[in-house]
Nucleic acid binder design. Structure first.
Length: 726
DNA sequence: AGCACGCCGACT
DNA sequence: GTCGGCGTGCTC
């Protein structure tokens, strides 16, 4: 006891939702410093934690337990610890949960083991064979090889290599772990840039060269070569000895992107995303922490890697909703990037053909610098976009493709070019009903319509994943053969297309496709090689892939997504359809985009057809600031979720009553909230906005403190959307 | 977040 | 008579 009282106690952030770090005793002879990664006892188990800053909080000395182990690992940099504190405070998340995000590679805290290698000695083998000669010829270079590497390179079995080792011709020598990627060379494969690109790259490199915190938006139409431009900024950061992070929406993190990077820098960036195999994950984490990896291309969680020398972050497809995490810690990685850069005092590049409204406003108001790339690169021209008014040019009965679109598909494939049909709806039909009694198939746990997937023979809920076999008879009235599919899904469009163009080669791309990522990659390759005439796809065709021979993009339902209550409906639809139509015309051939719509006068449709995005943006910004919808930039939401709608609603009401400025709060019910019903949990979103952009945080805190404490299964979480932190 | 403890329904 | 459901509570 006496000894423990004298022992130093340090704060350790443990990976669980405590309000702050816990105190642990530092055993005699153990050295730790802020940022040290340690193993500590927590209740019945041992967990990894990070030694935090300041003095350990006062605890009952009887509770104080000693640190179990200090890992031989680089410390979590000070910038990173401040970042964790900031994110925790901003999102009202317990800091331990945020810290947990940087500790997601448990095996990486121990140094990577050295690998057993083989090296030629002066000894001669007893007898020379052809296989042995091949091995020795390679080993003569004086290099140390791995056993399998040497056998493979020599084209012999590893028993040959093993035999030579047994005779002492090859000796074992330990070699350090291999880097996950080679060092990128900023001067490797410089791209030829257009004058616009050169100008933009020069501006960007100047900002990067100056160092210091700055945010630059590169706003350029699809195909204008934004990537080449920000690659130049990446090159200057590498030359300046900095590490670089490129954030991409997970789906855009494709092979094609990695290859483009390779072509420019002679090496791939390290990848970081949820599908990374655990072993690779650990190696990347470790090598980033050691500063061996200089460039990471990753999904949003890459922001929590422990870079010691980070000097530039690029966020590509800045507007993409995939940068938002909506579970546990609620954050928008794009916004947290800006904070991370401010803490580290280095620049940020945001790139998008269709920036988010809040980023545009930040640029307009001078907080961000904006660089515009107005035209497509080289001979590629933007597709000519037209609306098809479905009231005038209606599809035939039971069909979803209008005569105008069918005609365009026909002539496109007759020219040997490719057509893309886009419909953002998986499955066969979004609603099934009984023609006799009117019964509609609904999800038992979240009351959304069940989507028929005819290919799988199932009805599925796209909210919670519930699925059931498609019945023959109506469960309500028992009548056979009177169930009718309402509306189109991608499978149904495919069925129609195959029937109308029986000789065309049709490929369907959707995220629920059998065969997963591997199959998807094969299909994309096939399309690139011209092995398809018509591609039918959901959202996933919008991103990253280049289809060089694609000269027609048909949007089956341009109105889809405009009618839900999401305050961002118009913005999101504009972004999605811009990207999809942007798939066409990458090679200079004349190309067109056709939008099937019932609302040709809708601002989104008009913006796409006229190519005048500016008017659309100004209108959207004005719309939000006029009220009705919460103005951007000061928007936060408190999400209340509970098992039943009643409970969530009641709690939301109470919180709203507790708030001092009730007029500033809008309560959106499940119908309007974008994520109203998730996994059977009913959610409510209170959108909160204030007149001053100062201290949104304090307001939320006050509201939560004044409000009732959540009881039973009611949970309250806070999601702060666009930034008020600049 | 995990994990243990604890109190009520269907099974070797 | 036990196995096991998840509600509640705690972790320096």
């Amino acid at each position: 006891m006496q000894k423990f009282l004298q022992t130093r106690a340090v704060p350790v952030m443990v990976p669980m939702p405590a309000d702050g770090p816990y105190s642990y005793a530092v055993p005699e002879g153990t050295a730790v410093e802020p940022g040290s990664i340690v193993r500590v006892p927590l209740g019945p188990r041992l967990v990894a934690g990070v030694v935090w800053d300041g003095e350990g909080g006062a605890v009952d000395p009887k509770k104080l337990r000693p640190i179990d182990h200090v890992f031989d690992c680089p410390v979590v940099p000070e910038e990173m610890r401040r970042f964790v504190d900031w994110v925790a405070s901003y999102t009202l998340t317990p800091p331990g949960l945020v810290a947990r995000m940087i500790l997601r590679a448990p095996e990486a805290f121990d140094p990577e083991p050295w690998i057993e290698g083989l090296r030629k000695t002066a000894n001669e083998p007893d007898r020379m064979t052809e296989a042995r000669a091949k091995v020795l010829a390679l080993a003569d270079g004086g290099l140390t090889w791995t056993r399998s590497g040497l056998a493979h390179a020599a084209g012999v079995s590893s028993t040959v290599v093993e035999g030579l080792r047994a005779q002492g011709v090859l000796a074992t020598e330990m070699i350090p772990p291999r880097p996950v990627v080679a060092r990128p060379d900023p001067g490797f494969g410089k791209n030829l840039l257009s004058p616009d690109q050169r100008q933009a790259a020069a501006e960007l490199c100047e900002t990067v060269g100056n160092g210091g915190f700055a945010v630059t938006l590169i706003d350029g139409v699809t195909g204008s070569g934004k990537t080449e431009v920000y690659f130049e900024a990446v090159a200057s950061a590498i030359s300046a000895g900095k590490q670089v992070l490129i954030l991409l929406p997970e789906i855009a993190l494709t092979q094609a992107f990695l290859e483009r990077f390779h072509d420019r820098f002679g090496a791939r960036p390290a990848e970081w995303h949820s599908d990374l195999p655990p072993r690779m994950r650990e190696r990347v984490w470790r090598q980033v922490a050691e500063g061996q990896v200089r460039v990471v291309a990753g999904a949003r969680s890459a922001l929590f890697l422990p870079f010691p020398e980070l000097g530039l972050i690029v966020v590509d497809e800045e507007h993409d909703p995939a940068f938002k995490q909506e579970d546990r810690v609620f954050y928008n990685a794009r916004d947290m990037v800006v904070v991370r850069a401010r803490i580290g005092d280095f620049p940020v590049v945001l790139a998008s053909a269709t920036p988010s409204i809040e980023t545009r406003v930040n640029a307009d108001q001078g907080r961000y610098r904006r660089i515009v790339l107005p035209s497509r690169f080289a001979n590629a021209a933007l597709p000519d976009i037209r609306a098809i008014d479905l009231r005038r040019s209606a599809p035939a009965r039971g069909s979803f493709l209008s005569p105008v679109l069918l005609e365009a598909i026909g002539s496109t494939i007759a020219r040997g070019e490719q057509a893309l049909l886009f419909l953002n709806r998986r499955g066969y039909a979004p609603l099934t009903l009984c023609r006799v009694c009117g019964h509609r198939f609904q999800c038992p746990s979240c009351s959304a319509w069940l989507v028929e997937h005819r290919f799988r023979g199932q009805l599925l809920c796209h909210h919670c994943g519930h699925h059931e076999a498609r019945p023959e008879a109506c469960p309500e009235c028992g009548t056979f053969d009177h169930l009718v599919a309402c509306g189109p899904g991608i499978e149904r469009v495919a069925e129609e297309t195959v029937a109308l163009f029986p000789d065309a080669r049709v490929i369907v791309l959707s995220s629920d496709m059998l065969g997963g990522v591997k199959r998807l990659r094969l299909e994309l390759d096939a399309i690139a090689k011209g092995e398809a005439d018509i591609v039918i796809g959901t959202q996933l065709v919008a991103k990253g892939h280049n289809f060089p021979n694609m000269t027609l993009v048909g949007v089956v339902d341009a109105d889809l997504g405009l009618a839900n209550g999401d305050p961002r409906a118009a913005e999101r639809t504009f972004q999605l359809l811009s990207q999809v139509t942007g798939r066409a015309g990458r090679t200079g051939k004349k190309s067109i985009g056709l939008l099937q719509t019932f609302q040709p006068e809708h601002p989104v449709v008009r913006a796409l057809v006229s190519g005048d995005a500016e008017t659309f943006y100004q209108r959207e910004i004005a719309e939000r600031e006029r009220g009705g919808l919460p103005p951007f930039g000061r928007l936060a939401s408190i999400i209340v979720s509970a098992g039943t709608r009643g409970e969530a609603e009641e709690h939301a009401r109470q919180l709203r009553r507790a708030a001092p400025q009730a007029a500033d709060i809008a309560v959106l019910g499940p119908a309007e909230a974008p994520l109203a019903l998730v996994a059977g949990r009913h959610r409510f979103r209170l959108l909160v906005h204030g007149e001053r952009r100062s201290d949104m945080q304090g307001f939320l805190r006050a509201m939560l403190n004044a409000g009732p404490k959540p009881r039973r299964t009611v949970r309250v979480q806070v999601d702060v959307d666009p930034q008020s932190f600049l």
